[in-house]
Simulated scan of single mutants.
Amino acid sequence: MIMKTASLACIALLALSACSTSTTGRKQVMLFSETELSKMGAASFEDMKKQTPISSHKATNEFVQCVASAITKNVPASAHKGEWEVVVFDSAQVNAFALPGGKIGVYTGILNVTEDQDQLGAIIGHEVGHVIEHHSNERLSANKLSNIGMAVATVAVGASDLENKGLWMAGLGVGLQYGVIMPYSRSHESEADIVGQELMAKSGFNPKASIKLWQNMDKLGGNAPAEFMSTHPSNQTRIKQLNAHLAQSMPLYQQENSPNCKKPKVIPKPPAAKEKLG
């Protein structure tokens, strides 16, 4: 009986297979309103602008703005209505992101990995793909449901006569993390890859560049954790999936629609972090 009751933690997460459907046909649940998510996104973005230096390099900003503008023109209104705010952060991080509410951040570090406008289009397309598919809402909803499930299991185990209750609860937490939460996150990444590849193609960027991008990323990967213990698919898995999807993406690409965004020959290095006094 106790095992059945405690398994509500997992059942709660399995409820994620209901409610709505993504554009790729994957079942979703979203417990938060888009207004709430937009406010969260805007607040997070403002915090990041205060904490991370913003690039003032004209050519770099023009390049990123050019690519982002081409991408966001093709974003459905269901993801965001109105203008997008795009900021280039002066940081060596090899990263970029998009947030609900029309916010895009690109770190200068990733511009050293992207060779041209097409590869940057793949990056921004992928990040905006997360917004299009409402992944932030799903992740917050998943966390909320997992917390509810763990709370129910804690009460159930606490009322039982099981031995090693702490060990049992720790095991349940690991099972939720590796069995549900991480695969769920990996499905988001794979979906954003596919949606982003189609979005970049519609925006005039060659979708084949998404594959070259992840080949570049693979060279930087180093000793990455095993895929089943990672929130992201392996680079090789992504490359394989993107290759397979080219049959759908390439017909959307029209070379004459290329925005012709010019990457500067030199991306200035970010300033060294200042040593804190006191």
Results as ranks from 00 to 15, higher is better:
158 G>S: 08
18 A>I: 01
167 L>D: 10
171 G>C: 12
250 M>D: 15
195 V>N: 00
253 Y>C: 05
62 E>P: 05
102 G>E: 07
64 V>T: 03
231 T>Y: 14
33 S>K: 11
101 G>A: 02
157 V>L: 05
235 N>R: 00
39 K>P: 07
78 S>L: 10
80 H>G: 14
192 A>F: 10
261 C>D: 09
145 L>R: 00
187 S>T: 12
25 G>S: 09
196 G>L: 05
1 M>G: 00
40 M>T: 07
203 S>G: 07
129 G>S: 08
168 W>T: 04
122 A>F: 05
21 T>P: 05
204 G>Y: 10
17 S>D: 08
202 K>H: 11
253 Y>R: 07
76 P>Q: 13
235 N>S: 12
111 L>A: 07
225 P>C: 06
152 V>N: 11
41 G>H: 00
64 V>F: 03
69 S>M: 09
229 M>Y: 08
240 K>D: 08
23 T>W: 06
126 H>P: 07
132 I>T: 05
145 L>P: 01
160 S>L: 02
231 T>A: 05
73 K>Q: 11
149 G>M: 09
155 V>S: 09
32 F>I: 02
2 I>P: 07
86 V>T: 03
25 G>N: 11
166 G>L: 06
77 A>V: 11
179 G>I: 13
85 E>S: 12
133 E>Y: 01
274 K>H: 11
164 N>V: 02
156 A>Y: 12
13 L>M: 14
2 I>C: 13
133 E>L: 02
